[in-house]
Simulated scan of single mutants.
Amino acid sequence: MKSELKSDSKSVWKTKDIQIRDPFVLPLEEEGKYCLFGSTDKNIWGPGTGFDAYVSKDLENWEGPHPVFRPPADFFADANFWAPEVYAYEGRYYMFATFRRNDNGRLGTAALAAERPLGPFAPLSAGPVTPEAWSSLDGSLFVDEAGDPWMVFCHEWQQIGDGEVCAVRLAADLSQAAGDPVTLFRASEAPWTTPFVSPRYPDAVNYVTDGPFLFRGDDGSLYMLWASFIDNTYALGVARSESGGILGPWTHQPDALYRDDGGHGMVFRLFDGRRALAIHAPNRTPEERPLFLALAEKEGAISVGKPLTGSGE
């Protein structure tokens, strides 16, 4: 697999100076470098221009930005380019990212592919992998014990009120769904969430699901990070699969993992073997920054520690 990082960019940024939402870190061990992806448009709520990435040896000093995706002229979306996640899989690099469709105005997660971690990425799926009639976002790749790929994603609260986290099996080449979605849980089922009060829906009781990410614990347990709100403040929670498989059932830790206006988390390994959590905080534009926190696992529960070097605070 080609992992070499090539760029003419000479700019260096401190973590605290990078405006980014939905941070996703891809460690490249042979290179001794971390690639940071995320929602990088200055106004992510408007027209989409693409995705940029940054590269670092220490999570503190970042070289970039690298333009890793720019939409082709016939692309199916031109607004709301969100939450790119990049994975090494079967000899190539794959990006799962959310876009707002031009044809029906709904959000959906599509798959893109590239030969190198910094792209350029090109569309792989024919539009979103998520159902056409659904407003869906934040797709995340998970490969199960049998080696079969799945995508975990959110069925959006703005369409159904009580947001859901769902899973769909993917084709071997990741280009399309290979079955119907399965609902894993609803946001209101977690003991730590509270209804989200939206000025757009003042009389509705809404619960938000956002940014699911699955990872294995050191003891083999399967955990899921996902974000929601507590008293209209962005927060991150964690659930554990009782079966050890993607279909659960899922049991939620009673308290939020992080509740200080930060979330959309993912977990990665530092080069010294420690596990780290990446989130963005605060959850308001244009102040959002990447934040890296130590992560601990004990007796089937996950907890966060102090910010690591290079955190956004």
Rank of each mutant, 00 (worst) to 15 (best):
G217E: 14
L291M: 13
S136V: 01
Y93V: 02
P84D: 15
V182R: 15
H264G: 03
Y223W: 09
Y234D: 00
R289D: 14
S135L: 06
Y87K: 08
D58G: 07
G161N: 12
V197R: 03
R101P: 00
G220F: 07
T109Y: 08
Y223A: 11
R274N: 06
A53V: 03
G244I: 05
D52T: 13
P307M: 05
A114M: 11
M151G: 01
F215R: 13
Y94T: 09
F37K: 02
S140W: 02
P128S: 05
S125Q: 06
L293W: 03
A167I: 01
T49K: 13
S241N: 14
S188E: 13
D58C: 12
L214H: 07
V267Y: 13
L112R: 00
G245H: 14
G245S: 14
N206K: 02
L225A: 09
M224R: 12
R169V: 04
A167F: 09
F142V: 08
R186V: 10
T233D: 00
G48Q: 04
G46W: 09
W82R: 11
A53W: 08
G50F: 07
V182I: 15
M151A: 05
K33M: 14
G211F: 01
L214C: 09
M224I: 10
T15M: 11
Y258T: 01
H252L: 07
R92S: 14
R284M: 00
E30M: 01
G263Y: 00
P65M: 13
L124P: 13
A301P: 03
N283L: 00
A146W: 03
T309E: 15
E156I: 02
G179P: 06
V152K: 09
E297I: 00
T98L: 12
P290H: 10
N102D: 05
Y234F: 13
R186E: 15
E63G: 06
A73F: 08
P191W: 04
T109A: 11
E297P: 03
G91D: 08
R116W: 05
H264A: 03
E31L: 07
S39G: 07
Y201C: 01
P199T: 02
L293G: 02
L270A: 14
P47F: 11
D255M: 00
L247M: 13
G105W: 09
S221K: 12
G91F: 04
E164Q: 14
G119P: 03
A88G: 15
E30C: 00
L5Y: 09
G244F: 06
S175L: 08
M95I: 11
W150R: 00
V55G: 13
F196C: 00
V55L: 12
A296F: 12
D218M: 04
T40S: 11
E29M: 01
V267T: 15
L308T: 12
K42I: 10
V304P: 06
D148Y: 01
Q159T: 05
P27N: 13
L59Q: 14
M224L: 10
D103S: 11
P149W: 02
E189H: 01
L107N: 15
G147S: 07
F271R: 03
L295F: 09
Q159R: 06
L293E: 07
P286T: 05
L236V: 01
G48L: 04
